[in-house]
Structures are given as structure tokens and as C-alpha cells.
Design a protein around this nucleic acid. Sequence first.
RNA 1: GCCCCCGUAGCUCAGUGGAUAGAGCACCGGCCUCCGGAGCCGGAAGCGUAGGUUCGAUUCCUACCGGGGGUACCA
Length: 610
Amino acid sequence: MARPEDLDPVLAELATRVTKALEAAGLPGAEPDFERPRQPEHGDWATTVALRLAKPAQRAPRDIAQAVVDHIELPAAVQSVDIAGPGFVNFRLSHAYFEDVVERIVAQGDRYGRRQRDEGQREMINIEFVSANPTGPLHVGSGRWAATGDSLAALLEADGHGVVREYYVNDAGEQVRRFGESIVLVARGELLGEDHYKGEYILDLAREIRLEFGDDFFVAGDGIHFPEDAHITGELSAQRVRERAADGPHDTGASGMVEPTLAAKVGEIGVRKMRDRIADVLRDMGVEFDVWFSERVMHDSGAVEQTIDELREKGETYEQDGALFLHTTAYGDDKDRVLVRSDGRPTYFAADCAYFRDKWQRDHTRLIYLLGADHHGYVGRLQAAARSLGIPEDRLEIRIGQLVNLLRGGEPVRMSKRAGELVTLDEVIEEVGSDVTRYHFLRQSLDSMIDFDLDEVVKQSMENPVYYVQYAYARINSLVRTADDRGFAHGELDEADLGRLTAPAELELLRKLAELPEVVAEAAELLATQRLTRYAEELASSFHRFYTECRILPSDDPDASSSTTLLDTTDEERAAAEALGRARYWLAVAAKQVLRNVLDILRVSAPERM
RNA sequence: GCCCCCGUAGCUCAGUGGAUAGAGCACCGGCCUCCGGAGCCGGAAGCGUAGGUUCGAUUCCUACCGGGGGUACCA
């Protein structure tokens, strides 16, 4: 459990002092907990230790709180302490503490908010996400996992861990053959069956492969040739594709047969092409995977057989009806799972096991899976598989995210790859942009279903909160540019008198800036990106208020202030105003840095101008 | 049937046992002679229902109501 006192030496010291105060008062020892009060009047930190101790100590909470206050020696950075409500002990930090925060932010730059961990504390985390089958383009729903997984990875890095972003490519087995068959049939202008993949992209692939490998590529042994006029064929096929898709379940099946070896070959080529396209779209979204793990390669290497052997040797398996089962119920699964079918072919589940083994052997200390709710049924068997392979229970974390509800004008749009009726991620990115799309997904909890109404998102893109945050950043950049243009003498940070920052808006912003390290730690622990987006919005809000209420640069308009101020202003007052301006300038610079650091973790761009 | 997620303001959502439950959108009323109005300030409005645990419950437990998803020798 991340505790705020682990992140802040001042708070750690305060915790020690509270413990000592309890001892000095003759009260039972207790770990004081700290939380940030909602109301600013309640100070910067509060502990409920008096409330918790009331029962074991047999004393009224307020009495205990009073005893703490009477006996505590406050650290220098803590200005005051008082008791409130039923027995809260509230602490207020000194202004010097916040001045120090500004200095730390400017000194640490990009590192502010990030955690440095010792070797022993640092994990090597593998996070697997998206992993959509490479038999079709990514749809909008996958965008949620792309955005969330990538930002979680950045978040865990910020929390001081090593992270590997991984995509498991299901490029083996029956579906690849069927995928290849679909391409061949379309290339030949034949009808597709109910189980075939449909959609314009199949036609595109057929064209592409024909161009690359030549007209004869799709020639079948029985004399069926790839039609000479590709254009006409294409139109025909596309039309038929649509008809068949609309036809639905009473489909009678494909009009032609495809040789298994050709289907496999074409499937392999098609999958490779689709994988590249998927990688392109993800890159457009700013997501770069470290590892594209091929299931086929794993099969070819014999790793699946080895894993099955290993499981057999460990006594985790048994045979029944000619099939080999993994005894997953021993680890809480609903039913035992088949590893090898009675016909000798390994199941996908066997590959999943082998994949686990591979990942674990690559020296990861923690495995995270980000899965959609449609895969919820897999959790039990995946957990069991990991345990069977000797991966400790707490080293595997499977996070289920609720699905994205794709709408268009309030009407549901089906997202079925086979039916070919899907709205692809690249279309959406092109239409509304990567930042808006990402932020939209990152803003909500994984537990909540997201409505993605294409019409609404396009309409609302200008009022998306991401612009609110980015605007704050652009605004500060503009301020800095203007300061430079006018030759504003902001001096160095250590020359600025930050003690002058005492206006409510200034204090609010200072407090908010100080929160980042703990927001990062909490978000990382909970794997919750929405903690970061909320913080970003709060920070932007604090800045906007500060900017509105607190003039930073001196007015460039001599007439503007001449009538009253210039005449009445003494040198002393003018010097004070200048000093305040310099302090505010550095506060704005610190805010800019923190906004940038948050946006970096969200992996949303921080524009200098908008 | 069993399992998982959700139910918080008119709408979309935050809030991992603490004090007076917060944002955005929408609505109403204000705010720039000057650093970016994509902004700021103010107003109205809410924890599905019923029990339980606790000093304290939106949060944890149970039941019920309502919505979504999952339950293959599929891939």
C-alpha cells in the first residue's frame, strides 16, 4: 500500500512525531494515517489516529487528539496543528514547504512526480494489452485498451518500475486458415460462407497480395483462375460481400473450395499485413509495443509441446476420452481445461500456457493482462494456468475493462469482425484525433462502460476536457514567450521571493502542484488512469484561476495604469509589485512543468500553441 | 442457473471507511482598457431500495430491483 508518508520526507517526519506524542501521552502505539482533507480550512494533512484509538484506549477521540496536540513537537515545515470535528488532528504546512516544492519542480523538471526506486523495490512488469486478432482492422473498442494499456505502462514507469509493452499475436490455427480462405475466395470472385471474414479490407488484401505475388498466386489446382480484370472482380466481390453480410444466418456457405495449403499460406501473408496495419494505427495513436509476440513462432519452436510436457511431469494433467486435460479446478477454475484434443492438436489454451511460461522465463516479476469484459470467462483458467506453471498468485494481475459501446447518433453499431461491419480505429483517429480519443478513454474507470457515439464525439471534440488541460499548458507557453518578448526580468528562481505568493489562488495552485507524486503513486497502485486525468483537470483549473486573478507581467500599456497607480506609486511599492511578478512567473513555470509531466504519462501531447 | 461489472446532479462521469459527496456538458446570473475568453466567478440540482458491520458507509457484507457482459475438445 502506497502511503503518502513514503513519498514525502516532511510527512514521514510528522508521522514519527505523532507516534512519539502518543507514547509521551501514555497512549497505545499506532501507525498514524494521513489523508488530505477535502476542505482547505482543515489544513494540508489530517490524521484520524485519535478516532481509531478511541476504542482500544478507552478514551474519547477528542481527548486523544488533545493529548497528541499537547505532546507533539512539530517539524519545522509544519506550521500549526489543531483539532476539529469528532477528533481529527489537522496539520497545516508552512509556506516555506510550498516554496520548496516550486524549487523542487524546477530543479527536477521532467523527473518531478516520478519515483526513484532501489533495485530491490523495482519490478520488471510485463503488460499485455490490445492483442486483437490480426484477421481484421482494429475497431474503436480496441482503442480503449490501446490508450489505457499504454498510459498504464507509462504510469508504472513513472512509479519507478521497468515495463514491457506486449502484444500477443494470434497468428496460428484455424482462424488464420479461414482468414486465408476468405481472401482467396474474394480474389477468385467466389461467394463467402457464413464463417468467413467479410469486409472491404479482405478485398484490399486480395488485391495487394495479387499485386505482390502475381496473377498466378490464387490459381487453384482444379483450374479456377484469378479473374483477369481485377477491377471488375473487385466490384463484384465487394457487392457480394455486402450481400452476404446482410444475408445473415441463413447463409448457405461458400461457393468454392480452397486448398488447405493455399489457405494457410495466404492466411499467413494476410495476417502479417494486418499486423503491420494494426501497428501503424497504434503508432498513429502514440502506442509503441516493445514486443509483438507471435503465437505461430512459439508453436514452431516447440515451446507448446515443452510446456505440455512440463505440466504433465508436474502432475497437473490427466487424460480422459483421449484428450489431455489440465487440472485447473485445483486452482479455482470452474472446470478442467483441455490442453490437447483427442485428435492430437493442442488447444489455444495450451498456447496460452506456453505463453505464460515464456513470459515468466523472461525475468518479469509481475504480469499484467488488460482484457475486455468479453474475455471475463478466461480469467479463471488463466489464473489456474499461471499457478500450474508455478507463477505466484500475486504476480499475475488480470484487469477486466468494460466494453466500449459504439453508437452513431444514439443507435448501436455492431462491431463484428467477421460480419465486416465495424468502425475502425484509424477512421476515428483521423476524424477526431489521437489526443481526444485517448483522453476520452483514459478519463473513465475500467469498470465503467464507455459510450462512444461517433456523432457526439465529433460534435463534442471541441469541448473535450483534454483541450481544457492543453489550453492551460499553451497559455503558460504564451505567457513565457510574451515575457521574453518584452524582456521581462524574471531573473533566476533562487532570486525570486516565493514568500510573496499568498493570494488564495496562488496557495491553491501551490497545494495542487505538491500533489503530483502522490497522485502518480496512487494511480499506479490502482492502475487507474482516471486519477491522472482528474488531477490534470484540477491542476489546469487551479492555474486558470490563478492566471485570471493574479497579474504576472507588468502592464505594457502606459495609459492603462497611469491615472492612478503611476502617480501614487512609490518606488517601494513598484519594487514590491515587480518582486511579486517574478514570484508569480516562477509559479507559472512550475505549473507548466507539472502539466507537462502529467500529460506525458497520459501520453497526450502538450502543445506550445493551440 | 452460476460468475463478473455498473446504478451518484437533467446528461456523461469522478470519488480504493472519514468532516459540508465533486467535475464537465446543459440551464440561469455576472467578469477583460492590460499576460491567450478554448478562460474566470456565482446559482440551482444527487448517492437504486431495504437491512447489517463500524465511533463513522457513496465506499465493506446480505437480499431485492434495474442495466450490461460472460459462461465451448470455439478461435
